[in-house]
Design a binder for these strands. Structure first.
Lengths: 208, 208
DNA sequence: AGCATAAGCGGACTTTACCCCGGATGTGAT
DNA sequence: ATCACATCCGGGGTAAAGTCCGCTTATGCT
């Protein structure tokens, strides 16, 4: 009964479960953040204010989220859960079952709507010092697009490059190139235009 | 010879010439910024330090550039001058004279090289609170791409949308999706891959 | 040259992100 | 139940961004 026969290396990637209080605090902080966001907008969501309102120390906030942008990333990831399930097991054409090109088109429309709906948070989640993949936030797009492209016959295209290009073509406008007011105006009218633009783009790219 | 026969309204857009000392200070600040950048990297370029080293007040720095990111935007714009001249009057295929599709392909390669070379500054110029066009920084790309696309027969495509999509596809990877180390590794090897990716993409989009 | 005025300047001040580390607490093993 | 230890908590401390406003100075007119 020596301790020798149990795995000593704790399976890289799951080094240890999160402590119960830590989990509670994380939830608490996210919930509070949403409240504040709804009431006062992104700018008023300061680290100190969040900590105080959540009844926790500032240090805790930082340990949980690392950075201010990290909070917004966490919120987005949270919202993306639902979205992700639709991709994995929702009805076609967004979910499985439809031809990949149709799914790609549907994905673009859905993602655009998502980005518009969460524009404030999405913008606030951008951290100049880090690339977007860091926050997972976009890995969803990148991975999904990659997965679909792979199923479409595309000649000798460089799949990785094309993936990142299309991801950027889809998300870039909202993350970088459209001003806040653009996006607001766009909420309904140009949202549709964007969706069509995406449809055109991927059709052009994928037609044989 | 009364003052009546000169324009009273100072031609909107050029409300007044910049004062001489202002111009001098701007130059001084940009020069100093470049020095500091070369010596110590972006992170050490703080507003206070810049002001002090340039022998000016902090207020001056802010009036000139508005924000920290603004300094980097100004530096980039500066570097883009040369670039822009190549587009307008350099040799083909980058400059005028070649078929638009070739110019578009050449532009992508050149722009990618530019973004890679200036990656640090470019990243630092991103201001989460503002859209990129604000800084002109990308208007160059957007306008040039738009101009070229316009010369290519593209069926009933939505030119504005396609422009912003392609701009994002070209620049997004460097601005958002590639980590600093990615880009460094990429300096030579994948730079080429990116250029090829761009060539493929625009060919796909533009083939009839 | 002298004047009126708008533009520019400086640097103290405020706010906020992010760091640090001594002390408290949950956890898994005995 | 107890213990050892990793993890977590708290909140004061630092540095840097961005604001403000009274003073200075260039500019263009007479």
């Amino acid at each position: 009964m020596s301790r020798v026969d149990r795995p000593v290396l704790p399976l890289v990637g799951a080094p240890r479960a999160e402590r119960a209080d830590a989990v509670r605090n994380r939830r608490q902080l996210l919930a509070t953040a949403r409240e504040m966001l709804a009431e006062q907008g992104v700018d008023k969501l300061t680290m100190d204010a969040l900590a105080e309102r959540a009844g926790l120390g500032k240090g805790t906030v930082y340990r949980r989220f690392g950075t201010r942008a990290g909070i917004f990333k966490a919120l987005i990831e949270d919202d993306e859960q639902i979205f992700q399930e639709l991709l994995l097991s929702g009805p076609p054409p967004l979910g499985p079952g439809a031809p990949p090109l149709d799914r790609l088109i549907a994905y673009g429309a859905a993602r655009a709507a998502f980005l518009i709906e969460h524009r404030e948070i999405v913008r606030a989640a951008i951290d100049g010092r880090q690339s977007v993949p860091a926050g997972t936030e976009m890995n969803l797009s990148r991975m999904h697009i990659r997965m679909l492209l792979r199923q479409i016959p595309l000649g000798a295209a460089d799949l990785d490059i094309l993936t990142v290009q299309l991801t950027a073509a889809l998300e870039g406008p909202f993350l970088l190139y459209l001003s806040a007011t653009d996006i607001s105006d766009l909420t309904l009218h140009t949202q549709e235009r964007t969706a069509q633009g995406w449809r055109d783009l991927v059709r052009r790219v994928c037609r044989s």
